[in-house]
């Protein structure tokens, strides 16, 4: 009986991607690489389309990093489908290694060495074997993966080094003038391609910075990320409402906008 295992490789450097594929082919003949992605967003799209059982994700990729790609996958992963096992691949990053150890996530160092990769394959086989037995334990697997990703994202790795004092004023250029918007007046930030939409009680602005770059400059206690593309000022939240499908959304003071909370961040709203 041939039980093929499906996998995805996300790596922006072609030679390294091919090498990983070749090494895996030698070590794990039953493994079928169903997708090769050259950047983070391609990895997310391919993973959601093909639903592989294992994902090998390079940490530093153009667009989304491996970590952000994994988080995006977890956010949009269909209910009921088993979430892939994640293996991160990195060339050098001492902080990443600490974070990986801490979150108990499997990782491989580049250059990939066969003996080390064999260990990883062994571990993946065990995990997949254990997973096949009970019929439906997908939810815990996804929850576990999300807890790991939260720990990794929380460790600040992959993000630019945090600026010392939190941002207090946003300088928004509008034509020839620069408008000052106090951060304390912002209701929420929403990523829009390379820009961030800044929504205050009465107005909306666009700033030329990515949400990823803006996030470390905000006071983490005052601003909560509730979705891959939304950061909300905690004080502006009036209530969190769960609908029949179990999806959380936020209602704000001073705005009629409803903000969806993705499952990566649903743990922020527990209620007493």
């Amino acid at each position: 009986m041939s039980t093929t295992i499906t996998a995805l490789i996300a790596e922006d450097e072609l030679l390294l991607a091919e090498h990983l594929r070749a090494e895996l082919a030698a070590l794990w003949p039953e493994l079928e690489i169903v997708a090769m992605a050259a950047h983070g967003q391609a990895a997310v799209d391919a993973a959601l389309a093909k639903r592989p059982q294992v994902c090998f994700l390079d940490i530093r990729m153009p667009g989304l990093s491996g970590l952000e790609a994994a988080a995006a996958m977890a956010e949009d992963w269909p209910e009921g489908a088993p979430f892939p096992l994640l293996v991160f691949v990195t060339a050098y990053d001492q902080y990443a290694l600490q974070a990986f150890e801490h979150a108990a996530v499997d990782y491989v160092l580049k250059p990939v060495q066969r003996e080390r990769l064999a260990q990883t394959v062994q571990r993946l086989r065990q995990a997949l074997g254990g997973r096949a037995a009970p019929a439906d334990d997908t939810a815990p697997a996804l929850a576990h993966a999300m807890a790991q990703l939260r720990a990794l994202l929380g460790s600040g790795m992959g993000a630019p080094a945090p600026a010392a004092p939190p941002l207090r004023l946003l300088q928004v250029s509008v034509g020839n003038t620069i408008q000052m918007v106090p951060v304390s007046e912002v209701l929420y930030f929403e990523a829009a391609d390379k820009y961030v939409r800044v929504i205050t009680a009465g107005k909306e602005h666009l700033v030329r910075i990515s949400l990823r770059e803006l996030l470390p400059q905000l006071d983490a206690g005052l601003f909560w990320q509730v979705h891959r593309s939304v950061v909300v000022r905690a004080d502006a939240i009036a209530k969190a409402v769960r609908d029949e499908a179990g999806k959380l959304s936020l209602q704000l003071h001073g705005s009629t906008d409803r903000l969806a909370v993705s499952r990566m961040y649903a743990h922020l709203f527990k209620g007493l």
Partner: peptide, 15 residues
């Protein structure tokens, strides 16, 4: 830069 160095070495090893 270590990231550059190790990635280069990884490529070299494959080549």
């Amino acid at each position: 830069e270590p990231h550059m160095l190790f990635n280069t070495l990884a490529n070299l090893r494959v080549l």
